[in-house]
Computed example of a mutant assay.
Amino acid sequence: MKLSLADRLSARMRSRTVRTLREGPVLRVELNCPASGNAVTEAMLDDLLAVLAVPDPDVRVLVLSGAGDDFCLGGDRNEFADWLDEDPTGRGIRVAGDKARRVCEALSAGQAVTIARIQGRAIGAGLALALACDLRVGADTSGFRLPELALGLPTAWGGVLPRLIHEVGAARTRELILTGRAFDAEEARELSVLQRVVPEDELDAAVTAWAKPLVRRPEAALRVTKALLNSYAAPTRLADPAVLDAELMATVAAATRRPRHTGGNAAGAAPGTV
């Protein structure tokens, strides 16, 4: 029996790692693992795909947020280590990496306008999720970092590298990735990582200020305009090898595999995250 849209939405709302709330044409999607800083796991990717892979055509705006103090502290390093223990060739990383690419593509290429609502830190995979959204607003206390290189990994998750080069520029992207330094909300706005910065208690109002006029736009015009923006942006990327991200991440992780350690935080992210 084919499930109705209401039944599918109800099933999505029972997700363990992601919470959803439908408000008419606006769908709010919240990463819901605050104890880990909303670290991205394979279970979270599965839950995001359940929401995003078959989008509701009546949703005009999708708001992506994170529960707790931080938007997302990146990928779960403990899960990476478990995958390498199970298969030293990195098969588990390849599988999850492919899911990450599909999640980010759904956010960027889906017909709904996507808004990232960012508080606290957006690190590694968390920054990739935010960059996949069309519009990004951050609290004035938010912070960002790409720590992968310090962890012995390439910046290859969810197509983040071509998006960074397109949005930020090649020279600045090179500096952020090679140094792995943290940057704050004001610099993020200067780099176009954020389009707007507000006090944290004004984040919801800022999201509403964007969403309210969007839901009034004619559906066909909104959908076609987003498709046009994506189409015109594509040539400026020159190449988008995101399909190779999972292979690159798995190959490098397997080649640089190190013994597990505890309490490590060399890259400045929360322990256990990428």
Rank of each mutant, 00 (worst) to 15 (best):
T114E: 02
L149G: 07
A100V: 09
E187Q: 11
E105C: 10
W157V: 12
T236G: 14
R217W: 01
A171G: 15
L107Q: 07
L62K: 02
A116M: 11
L228A: 09
T41R: 10
R12M: 06
A112T: 06
D201I: 02
L222V: 10
E190G: 14
G126I: 01
P55E: 12
T256Y: 11
P259A: 09
Q195F: 10
R163E: 12
L228F: 05
L73R: 15
V137W: 01
A116N: 13
D245F: 04
A269T: 13
S192P: 02
A128R: 04
S36K: 02
V54C: 08
D240K: 10
L131S: 11
K99D: 02
A266T: 10
E187W: 00
C33H: 03
R101E: 06
D140Y: 01
L203K: 13
L52S: 06
L135V: 07
P259C: 06
A206K: 05
V29R: 10
D201H: 13
I165W: 00
Q111I: 01
A96Y: 01
A100I: 08
M1W: 00
A116W: 03
A205L: 08
P235A: 02
A81N: 09
A209I: 05
L5I: 03
A254C: 07
D240T: 15
V59I: 14
A269M: 04
L153I: 10
P241T: 03
E86A: 15
V224D: 03
L129W: 00
R60C: 12
R101V: 06
A221T: 13
V29Q: 07
D46H: 01
A239T: 14
N265M: 11
G110T: 07
G24L: 08
V18A: 07
A128F: 00
T273A: 13
E148M: 08
G37S: 10
T89E: 09
I118W: 07
L135N: 09
L129E: 00
T251S: 13
T262G: 05
L9M: 12
R117T: 02
D245M: 06
L84S: 08
A122V: 06
R136I: 01
V54M: 04
L214F: 05
